[in-house]
Amino acid sequence: MRQRREEAASWPQAFFPGLVLLVFFVIPFAIMLTVSFFKRIEGGFFEPSFELSNYIRFLSPFFGKILFTSIALAAGAAAIVVVIAFPFTYIVSRMDRRTQTIILVFILSVLSLSEVIIGFAWSTLLSRTAGIGNLIAWLGLSDAPQAYTPGLVALILGLSYLGFPYAVLTMYPAISRLDPELPEAARMSGASPLKAFVSVTLPIMRRTITGALILVFVFTLGAYLLPQVLGRPAHWTLPVHITDQAIFQSNIPFGAAMATFFLLVSLALVGLALAVSGDRKGSQP
């Protein structure tokens, strides 16, 4: 428990932030929940009503297929990303401070990139006229340059690119605080660096890795543009359909119902991730 001090600020300090978060975050979510039971109006937005039809549509094969595609894509990308990001972060956190800072600046820059830009950049890199197809043809591995997008591989690559910096920054705090003497001790007892890493470092970090896996899964599950730019319509995920319903099909109530469902799933997963990776407050100085 935090130490209370006499000169502690009084509650008005929390008034403005509390008000802003209540009005512009809690109320929008309450409205969204309400609208998910409303009735759509052709050519308009929605009208008050109470119907469960929007939720009943979840039982259709249409929705089942979207859900399966979304989960499979995000789970695949999350697994690839964490498997690569863990050793990456581990090695980077052992580099000197200067190199580490430069790499972190780059990782942050990639993290902040808009999905639009990532999608555009990868569709360029995989295109016929400006992409690696040229390089492959030049090396003689294929007869003529070809395009590698859109497609499943392109989409998985893009999602991994999107999730990678996020995975690095999620695991960085725990990995950089890892006591370097533990693997050191294993090496002294004759284990090879790789064996020390696999048998000592990985088990200690199990909770961090599981937490990161879930958070990256939720993060890539939220991808909205990449499935449209790098994938085919069959690869459209839940966020694409939510937006499609709300904006292009003018069916905000159904979009709101899907978003509510997505919210509950994400909240449960984020809660699980935070619980798994342990109480963060315990590690503060």
Binding site: F24, F25, V26, I31, G222, A259
Partner: peptide, 21 residues
């Protein structure tokens, strides 16, 4: 928790919430 939640959740959810609001 309320302050960090919008950033942790998939943005499309907040986006739809903001839209109806």
């Amino acid at each position: 928790g309320l302050g960090i939640a919008p950033f942790l959740l998939p943005p499309v959810i907040s986006a739809l919430g903001f839209m109806v609001f």
